Amino acid sequence: MGEGVQKAGRRPRADSLRNREKLLLAARDVFSAGGPEASLEAVARRAGVGIGTLYRHFPTREALFQAVYLRDVDQLVALAQQAADGRDPVEALRQWLHACVGMVATKKGMLTALAPSVQGSDPLFADTSRRLRAAVGSLMERAVAAGRIRSDLTPEDLMRAMIGMCYTREQPGWQTTVVLLLDVFVDGLRLPPDPAA
Rank of each mutant, 00 (worst) to 15 (best):
M162T: 14
R148N: 05
A145W: 12
L153G: 10
W174I: 00
D152N: 12
I149G: 00
V179L: 03
V179N: 00
M165C: 03
I163L: 10
C166S: 13
L158Q: 09
Y167H: 15
E156V: 14
T176K: 04
P172D: 11
G173M: 14
S151R: 13
V144R: 13
V144Y: 08
V184P: 01
G164P: 05
V186P: 00
R169L: 09
D187N: 12
M165E: 01
T154C: 03
V186E: 01
M159T: 08
L153H: 09
V178S: 02
A161V: 15
P155A: 07
P172F: 05
L180S: 07
M165I: 09
A143H: 03
M159Q: 07
V178F: 01
A161C: 07
T176S: 13
Y167M: 15
V179K: 05
L158F: 11
A161R: 05
L189R: 08
P155R: 07
D183M: 03
A161K: 03
Q171M: 12
T177H: 08
V186W: 01
Q175V: 06
D152H: 10
M165K: 02
L189H: 04
E156H: 12
P192M: 06
M159C: 12
Q171W: 09
Q175E: 14
Q171K: 10
M159W: 00
L181H: 08
L158T: 10
S151I: 03
L153Y: 15
M162V: 15
I149M: 00
G164S: 06
F185M: 15
P155W: 11
I163K: 07
L181S: 13
D152V: 08
A161L: 11
M159R: 05
T176G: 13
L182Q: 03
P172T: 08
Y167C: 14
Y167P: 13
L158R: 03
G173T: 13
I149Y: 01
G147Q: 03
Q175I: 03
I163A: 15
Q171S: 14
R190Q: 10
A145Q: 11
A143I: 00
R150A: 07
E170P: 08
E170C: 11
L191S: 12
A145V: 09
F185Q: 10
M162W: 00
T177K: 11
A146N: 04
G188D: 03
D157E: 06
L180A: 11
R160M: 12
M165D: 02
L182P: 01
V186T: 02
T154G: 06
W174N: 08
R160F: 10
A145F: 08
A145P: 05
R190V: 02
R148I: 00
T177M: 10
D152W: 07
I149K: 00
L189P: 08
D157L: 05
R148W: 00
T177A: 15
L191Q: 12
L158S: 03
V144T: 10
